[in-house]
Write a protein that binds this DNA or RNA. Structure first.
Length: 460
RNA sequence: GGCUGCGUGGCAGAGUGGUCAUGCAGCGGACUGCAACUCCGUUAACGCCGGUUCGAUUCCGACCGCAGCCUCCA
């Protein structure tokens, strides 16, 4: 039975979908003004695995991940670059897709954009004003009146008084209360703007997600995900908006993933201590990055370091080394395996404990290595590994391709020729020559493996 | 300052009131011409101080340390 740690209740809750057999999932996506970094990769991979696992568990999942394509940073960046907002956002949406695809992240069912959801947002703001949760101000902005919403603070575990005492923002004269947040911003002359009942302007960030999630999934849906940093104020505000407008609980399960850190400090754009997905993929193959992300529980912090990536690479290499030698049996489904399959399910059912699930996979690998090559059981276990891999997004590539890496032109030919030369030397028992050839290959970053009279190679 | 959460072996990282995590690395052995791969064996941990308990790394409390949020942020 699946249990999910719910940020709203601050405990693991048994997952019961609104509609039997179906799951509606909404995740806050990227603001597209720059390349994705490893922190973004974590969100994408984590919720990709959540989606894959829910589907593997028999649920019909509708997965929505929005795109914020209008916002202060986007406007600033476009101006800075001297390019149009649309050109900037289209460019970075394409880059984001490239990164996501590279990481094996399946596309969400829908990726609604803020700029294409204006009527929904405006309608929602009108409803909020009509119900007394929001007020237009003299300067053309519209604000949410936090004091009108009783549950404000229930997600982030704060109350309004605490928030006031911790207030660090300069008071904005247009607001009735410093805690009130903007739903609609009046446009400055040079800024892009949309027509609204309150004049030309653009939406605040928080209203986007409330409008897009309810448009795509309805007034109530099952799971809402995002990074921990969005819990307050973004998700708190989303609750205030959605529940204020609809008068019912909007989300049943809130999931927040932990941060990626560098040297025990949060990786973020504002701190400038980030690696882009592009940079990391230049050094490590995508599944190594996925494996690294899945080695820790999604709610724990994940410290990024070369050593961790190297460890992930070493671990994944062992799997692929095993899989290279064994053809997986077709049609093996882990759900039908009463030993490893059950343990895997138990791990994943426990709030998506991927670290524990990986240890089950390690046991399968070891069992497989003990089986005689070519045996039925070996083929079965290999098939089982592939089946687990489909849930975690691992073993999606050919073992040979993973182990040999990206081929440079005629590298393979050169290597094969040297292996042949070494083979000859070995047959002549000219060990010095054989070792010299191997050293040469080692210097090229090639590791040899002599197995069953056959020599295979891989990249270091 | 307020609110969350965390502190596990050399590293990464699960988990549990009393008996096994797992991976990387290390050590010993098998295999190998030697290696690599693989297998077998093996070392080693639960921040500190109290309390509850027959027994606590696991529960409770204090303390120390760290991180996140309170402002844009995945």
């Amino acid at each position: 039975m699946l249990q999910i740690h719910n940020s709203l209740t601050k405990q693991k809750d048994i997952f019961t979908p609104i509609e039997e057999g179906k799951v509606s999932l909404y995740v806050c996506g990227m603001t597209v003004y720059d390349l994705c970094h490893v922190g973004h990769a974590r969100v994408m991979v984590v919720f990709d695995v959540v989606t894959r696992y829910l589907r593997a568990s028999g649920y019909d999942v509708t997965y929505i991940r929005n795109i914020t394509d209008i916002d202060d940073k986007i406007i600033a960046r476009a101006n800075q670059n001297g390019e149009s907002i649309q050109s900037l956002t289209e460019r970075f949406i394409a880059e984001m897709h490239q990164d996501a695809d590279a990481l094996g992240v399946l596309r969400p069912d829908q990726e609604p954009k803020a700029t294409e959801s204006m009527p929904d947002m405006i309608a929602m703001i009108e409803t909020l004003i009509a119900k007394g949760f929001a007020y237009p101000s003299d300067n053309g902005d519209v604000y949410y009146d936090v004091s009108e919403f009783d549950g404000y603070g229930k997600l982030s575990g704060r109350n309004i008084e605490e928030l006031r005492s911790g207030e660090r923002v300069a008071v904005n004269e247009a607001k009735n209360d410093p805690l009130d947040f903007v739903l609609w911003k009046a446009a400055k002359p040079e800024e892009p703007a949309w027509e609204s009942p309150w004049g030309r302007g653009r939406p605040g960030w928080h209203i986007e997600c409330s409008a897009m999630s309810s448009t795509c999934l309805g007034e109530q849906f099952d799971i809402h995900g995002g990074g921990q940093d969005l819990q307050f104020p973004h998700h708190e505000n989303e609750i205030a908006q959605s529940e204020g407008a609809h008068g019912c609980q909007s989300v049943n399960y809130w999931m927040h993933n932990g941060f990626v850190r560098i040297d025990d400090e949060k990786m973020s754009k504002s701190l400038g201590n980030f690696f882009t997905v592009r940079e990391v993929l230049a050094r490590y193959s995508p599944e190594v990055v996925r494996y690294f992300i899945l080695t820790s529980h999604y709610r724990s912090p994940l410290n990024y370091s070369d050593e961790s990536l190297e460890q992930a690479k070493a671990a994944l290499t062992r799997y692929y080394t095993t899989l290279r030698d064994t053809e997986g049996q077709e049609g093996v489904v882990w759900q039908q395996d009463t030993d490893y399959g059950t343990r895997f399910r138990d791990a994943m059912d426990d709030d998506f404990n991927t670290a524990l699930a990986l240890s089950v996979m390690a046991d399968v690998r070891q069992a497989l290595n003990k089986e005689p090559a070519g045996s039925m059981q070996a083929a079965y276990l290999a098939g089982l590994l592939y089946s687990f891999g489909d849930v975690l997004g691992l073993f999606q590539q050919n073992a040979e391709d993973f182990l040999l890496g990206d081929q440079q032109d005629d590298l393979a030919e050169t290597v094969e020729a040297l292996i042949e030369a070494r083979k000859t030397a070995r047959e002549e028992k000219d060990w010095a020559k054989a070792d010299q050839v191997r050293d040469e290959l080692t210097a090229m970053g090639i590791i040899l493996e002599d197995n069953a009279g056959k020599t295979t190679w891989r990249k270091a």
